[in-house]
């Protein structure tokens, strides 16, 4: 597994390649010299202790932060700075650690909003809600209904998401990301705060998304059982550095990973 720590060469199979990315806020180094790749169609987990820079990594990938050094290649296109809306247009969707839904809107409207990039009818027709605008609205509603069926949330279609329990909110958020029909789906702790049953449901949805839609998934998760079962390959970050990369079995045996999680190597440090 240590052999994979070399700077990644862009091969055809990889959808996303992160090369020597560093990110710092003032004097604080959130990420230093991290490189890894995500292959087309795989489920890639990013794990690590709190504050390891996992969410910062996702924020770099979807253009919310700009790496101070290094580059990110998505779909064969290398970039250093990218606006979040451009990343979205390029096919990167995202869910958040603490649910970031549009609380005042219904489930249906939230997922419909995920289709924003695909709706193009002119402002004039929007004013009239007729002709192309209505046709477009109906067509996208059909897609959204498929997603609602897929996630089994038909019963909460009309309910404002602010009123939904946490587990369902997470599911709606996944639905909103799916509505973008992304090539790469970034999931930031999709199972945080869920009970066992909800975790099982969510795991099933993630696997289904990956297999049925062929969506490539990068996921941050603390539940090791889930990570080991779901993911094809795992990246381990600690203090903004990559300490391991490989299949779940390889990573599980890695001494540095074990040390990072059990704190053996850093007895003096604050975790």
């Amino acid at each position: 597994m240590n052999g994979r720590e070399m700077p990644v060469t862009v091969d055809v199979a990889s959808l996303l390649a992160v090369e020597n990315v560093s990110l710092s806020f003032g004097g604080v180094k959130a990420l230093s010299d991290v490189s890894f790749d995500i292959r087309r169609g795989e489920i890639r987990a990013i794990i690590g202790p709190n504050g390891a820079g996992k969410t910062s990594m996702l924020n770099c990938i979807n253009g919310f932060y700009h790496p101070t050094q290094g580059s990110i290649t998505f779909n064969g296109e290398r970039r250093r700075r990218m606006r979040p809306s451009a990343a979205a247009a390029g096919g990167i969707a995202r869910t958040f650690q603490n649910v970031a839904l549009f609380k005042g809107m219904s489930t249906l409207d939230n997922i419909m909003t995920g289709r924003s990039l695909k709706m193009h009818s002119g402002f004039f027709w929007q004013l009239l809600r007729h002709g192309p605008a209505l046709k477009e609205e109906t067509a996208h509603r059909r897609v959204v209904e498929d997603i609602i069926d897929f996630l089994e949330i038909q019963h909460i279609r009309r309910i404002p998401v602010g009123k939904l329990p946490y587990g369902l909110q997470k599911r709606v958020e996944l639905g909103r990301a799916l509505a973008m029909e992304p090539q790469l789906l970034l999931l930031d702790e999709p199972m945080a705060g869920m009970n066992l049953e909800e975790k099982e449901d969510m795991s099933r949805f993630i696997l289904d998304v990956n297999q049925h839609f062929g969506t490539t998934i990068a996921l941050i998760e603390h539940d090791m059982g889930v990570v080991m079962d779901l993911s094809d390959r795992v990246v381990v970050l600690e203090y903004g550095r990559k300490i391991a990369d490989g299949t779940p079995q390889e990573v599980k045996r890695d001494e540095r990973v074990v040390a990072a999680y059990l704190g053996l190597a850093h007895e003096g440090d604050q975790a």
């Binding site: 979807n62 919310f64 979040p84 809306s85 990343a87 979205a88 247009a89 969707a93 995202r94 958040f96 970031a100 839904l101 549009f102 609380k103 005042g104 809107m105 409207d109 419909m112 909003t113 995920g114 924003s116 990039l117 709706m119 009818s121 402002f123 929007q126 004013l127 009239l128 809600r129 605008a133 477009e136 609205e137 909103r176 973008m180």
Partner: peptide, 26 residues
């Protein structure tokens, strides 16, 4: 008509969570 369509949803998305709206491509 406006608030029930694409435009209205974009407005409400910006109101409720502008960061998420931006990451959706608004």
């Amino acid at each position: 008509n406006l608030v029930h369509g694409r435009v209205g949803r974009a407005w409400m998305a910006v109101r409720d969570m502008d960061i998420a709206a931006e990451l959706i491509g608004i």
